[in-house]
Simulated scan of single mutants.
Amino acid sequence: MALVGALLTMVIPFSLELFAMNRLRALPFALISALDPTLASAVGVFDLHQFFQR
């Protein structure tokens, strides 16, 4: 069951990126891809209340 979960967490985002890459032009796709870590950090801080430690 863990193997299925691990595969799904890799396959679903990858397939969504391929779908977006085919539908978007290069610049918007690159911008969204570049801002992805920033969005993940914001969700971690504001929604999950996780903070960076020094």
Results as ranks from 00 to 15, higher is better:
residue 1 M to V: 13
residue 1 M to P: 10
residue 1 M to W: 13
residue 1 M to S: 15
residue 2 A to K: 12
residue 5 G to A: 09
residue 5 G to P: 00
residue 6 A to T: 11
residue 6 A to S: 14
residue 6 A to R: 12
residue 7 L to G: 07
residue 7 L to S: 12
residue 9 T to Q: 09
residue 9 T to M: 10
residue 10 M to R: 09
residue 10 M to N: 10
residue 11 V to C: 04
residue 11 V to M: 08
residue 11 V to A: 10
residue 13 P to Y: 00
residue 13 P to K: 01
residue 15 S to N: 03
residue 17 E to D: 12
residue 17 E to V: 14
residue 18 L to C: 08
residue 19 F to R: 07
residue 19 F to N: 05
residue 19 F to A: 07
residue 20 A to P: 00
residue 21 M to A: 15
residue 21 M to Q: 15
residue 21 M to W: 14
residue 22 N to L: 14
residue 22 N to A: 14
residue 22 N to S: 14
residue 22 N to M: 14
residue 23 R to E: 07
residue 24 L to C: 00
residue 24 L to G: 00
residue 24 L to P: 02
residue 24 L to S: 02
residue 25 R to M: 08
residue 25 R to W: 07
residue 25 R to D: 14
residue 25 R to K: 15
residue 26 A to M: 11
residue 26 A to V: 14
residue 26 A to D: 10
residue 26 A to Y: 12
residue 28 P to Y: 02
residue 28 P to A: 02
residue 29 F to A: 01
residue 29 F to H: 02
residue 29 F to P: 03
residue 30 A to T: 03
residue 31 L to K: 01
residue 31 L to S: 00
residue 32 I to N: 00
residue 33 S to C: 07
residue 34 A to K: 00
residue 35 L to D: 01
residue 35 L to N: 03
residue 36 D to S: 11
residue 36 D to E: 10
residue 37 P to L: 01
residue 37 P to R: 02
residue 38 T to K: 06
residue 38 T to V: 14
residue 39 L to D: 05
residue 39 L to Y: 09
residue 39 L to K: 05
residue 39 L to F: 13
residue 39 L to Q: 08
residue 40 A to D: 06
residue 40 A to K: 09
residue 42 A to H: 04
residue 42 A to G: 04
residue 43 V to F: 06
residue 43 V to Q: 01
residue 45 V to N: 06
residue 45 V to L: 08
residue 46 F to Q: 04
residue 47 D to Y: 09
residue 47 D to T: 11
residue 48 L to V: 05
residue 48 L to G: 03
residue 48 L to E: 04
residue 49 H to W: 04
residue 50 Q to G: 13
residue 51 F to L: 12
residue 51 F to G: 09
residue 51 F to Q: 12
residue 52 F to M: 11
residue 53 Q to S: 07
residue 53 Q to K: 11
residue 53 Q to G: 06
residue 54 R to A: 11
residue 54 R to I: 09
